[in-house]
């Protein structure tokens, strides 16, 4: 039994290490190979090169897709943060009707597989004769990220002391002033965190986009199309850049959403 007690922690470390290799290892392959040329299906390891990155900068399809992705992401972020904040405010307001139902609807696209959300929107757009375009992608992304944005803002809203709002009204502030001068400053970091998270999700969203897109393709959709054809150095270069960008986004989101409380809360253990 003593021996087992000594082996168990070592096994845990090994298992954790193994999982980390599983999670990060595969990602290293395209990053590393993006710096080498491929000829006749074999990677030429002898001389590193940045030619793939140069080729990428001249690839108009990819640049267009990047632009589309940024437009869609920004659109989805603005829509989802405004809507999420509004709905969270409504949810906490005393006159709110059918809170549970409203929340259920918002969570549907998040709980259901993206293929269902995407197909439902596809049929819907066709039925109301709404041309598939950038707008439909933005709508798809907005309903997809809304649950997360809404939840993040609601959590912050509910953690605020009610006396803040009470004091604001007592001091003669109107509803709008209370919102702008009291609630908004308190919500801002949650809103920024939610916005970054929403952007990261939108940046990566593939399944809904594939279904509701018209002729435009976002970066993941473009990547998807490229990858089905096989491995090329410029895909690898693109993959490396996208990974760099999303990792940066993640770390920013973490900074805004997981500061003091999480780390402080862990110290009690």
């Amino acid at each position: 039994m003593r021996l087992a007690d000594r082996i168990a922690p070592a096994l845990l470390v090994l298992m954790t290490l193994f999982v980390f290799i599983l999670l990060y290892g595969p990602l290293m392959v395209p990053i590393v190979s993006s710096f080498f040329t491929v000829s006749h299906g074999a990677v030429d390891w002898s001389q590193p090169t940045t030619s793939a990155y140069v080729a990428l900068a001249a690839n108009e399809g990819v640049l267009n897709a990047l632009w589309t992705t940024l437009v869609v992401g920004s659109g989805a972020v603005v829509c989802s943060v405004v809507l999420g904040t509004g709905i969270a405010l409504y949810y906490t307001s005393p006159n709110a009707k059918g809170r549970g139902f409203l929340q259920f609807i918002i969570f549907l696209p998040f709980l259901m597989p993206p293929i269902i959300t995407g197909l439902a929107l596809l049929i819907f757009f066709r039925q109301v004769e709404f041309e598939r375009s950038l707008v439909t992608i933005i709508i798809g992304h907005t309903v997809f990220v809304l649950a997360l944005v809404y939840r993040t803002i609601l959590t912050r809203l509910q953690s605020l002391s009610g006396s803040l709002v009470e004091a604001s009204y007592d001091l003669g502030a109107s509803r709008w002033q209370t919102f702008r001068l009291v609630l908004l400053p308190n919500l801002s970091s949650a809103m920024v965190g939610a916005a970054v998270l929403a952007f990261a999700l939108s940046f990566d969203e593939t399944m809904i986009t594939l279904l509701v897109t018209g002729t435009q393709s976002t970066l993941p959709v473009r990547l998807w199309a490229m990858m089905r054809l096989g491995f090329t150095p410029d895909i690898n270069a693109l993959v490396a850049l996208v990974l760099l960008f999303t990792t940066a986004l993640c770390l920013i989101a973490v900074r805004f959403l997981m500061p003091k409380s999480a780390v402080a809360g862990s110290d009690e253990d």
Partner: peptide, 26 residues
């Protein structure tokens, strides 16, 4: 404990936000 736990947790969660298509490809 403390910070180490959350750093490791974040490292485990970072792949969640990485491009799904890219992970499949990798």
């Amino acid at each position: 404990r403390g910070r180490r736990r959350y750093v490791l947790l974040v490292l485990l969660l970072v792949p969640l936000l990485m491009s799904y298509v890219i992970k499949i490809y990798a």
